[in-house]
Design a protein around this nucleic acid. Sequence first.
RNA 1: GCCCCCAUCGACUAGCGGCCCAGGUCACAGCCCUUUCAAGGCUGCAGCGCGGGUUCGAAUCCCGCUGGGGGCACCA
Length: 416
Amino acid sequence: MSVRVRMAPSPTGFLHIGGVRTFLFNWLFARGRDGECLLRIENTDTSREVEESVDQIERSLRWLGIEWGGGTTFQLDRLERAQEEAARLVEAGSAYEDEGAIRIRMPNEGVTGWDDAIKGRIEFPNAQLEDLVILRSDGRPTYNFASPLDDWLDEITHVIRGDDHVSNTPKQIHVLRALGAEPPAYAHVPSVFGEDGRKLSKRHGAVSVDEFRDAGYLPEALMNFLALLGWAPDGETTIMSRDELFERFSLERVGASPATFDYAKLDWMNGVYLRALSAEDYAGRLTTWLREHEYDWPEERVRAAAPLVQEKIGRFAEFPDFAGFLFHDVEPDPALLDRRVLAAAETALSETEPWTAAEIETTLKRLCDELGEKPRTVYLPIRVAVTGSRISPGLYESLELLGRAEALARIQGKSE
RNA sequence: GCCCCCAUCGACUAGCGGCCCAGGUCACAGCCCUUUCAAGGCUGCAGCGCGGGUUCGAAUCCCGCUGGGGGCACCA
């Protein structure tokens, strides 16, 4: 039997990064075994539905590269079928009407258990289970009825979901059995915490996929990072392409304990991916990111600046601060400007020919000798005058790209 | 209150009874390289929550405790 899994978000808001990680596991699992991964929106509670959220969910998944087959489906698509099945259960005596709603009978003794692919054997005493409402008095199914019903009809083989569903599982197993269906395999993925050990939320930083995208992370870096949150192929390998990811992924190697989201490690990993990009690809992605974030800087210059920053910044969002001086004038801290050095630099650079990084380097090194100063003493004021900061891309390249006229104007302007 | 789950460096993890006086990665510290910042190289810091067992031998198995998390809706 081929593998079929589903990602089942509720349309109540944006896609949370913890949920994305669970979806990623679904996708990796299916992809690695030629299976199918479906997307089903759990919308039985229409009152909580948030407009746009389905669009957002789909857009987020696409950006990350998580694919799904069969189109997006909705739980309410099966409204009639759910009502028929509920009626069938009443007829069979395994469910009954209660104040207009339909409740399913739950056993009162014994235990219900399953072998969780991640957590191992889990058992619940049946005495713990109440007869649950499967059909509301308004005729709509409840989650714990609609979800297993859909899983059955969609022929889902593995339910891979957040471990906040663990206590729903025995209920759903009974629903399935009452329906005459064989329960799927279950795998409950532990949750993701923020750095304070509490559930990941806004105040920890970015949590929605959109926010990571806005911060300038690469989708493949985020995917790699997410895959390693709670899963490890061997304890040694960290950087993995998506092909390698789904080749190596297995539920058996997903850890049973919750993981903490480490933004610093994500930053590092994003840098690794950024630096590994070809110059061409890097420039293209940077350009796209800037355009999507309303920086209308000339593309030609952005592309020219790309190689200067590729080794330097860890996220595209750092670009405006780091290389913005190439697109607008700056206001340096006067305390860092040395007028003697700047005056000498202006003179020397005005004679540099041709205006290339290599020639500028020669000029500035000679200047250091003439002034009898160390490079750091000479370069700092120039860097600050031109870039507005003591931290910037390489000085020679920056000067070259800025152009002689603008560079000299800034040096002169700031030396007065 | 009841039920369920979890527990290795600050973080992600490897470890599934001897190969571990615990390995890798991030972070952190120091050094090297260097025009700044990064990147890169090297070195270092740092951990099996506690208490009982089982065993010749336990991070690994069992029990208890503690701590953390989740759930107990005509929400999903």
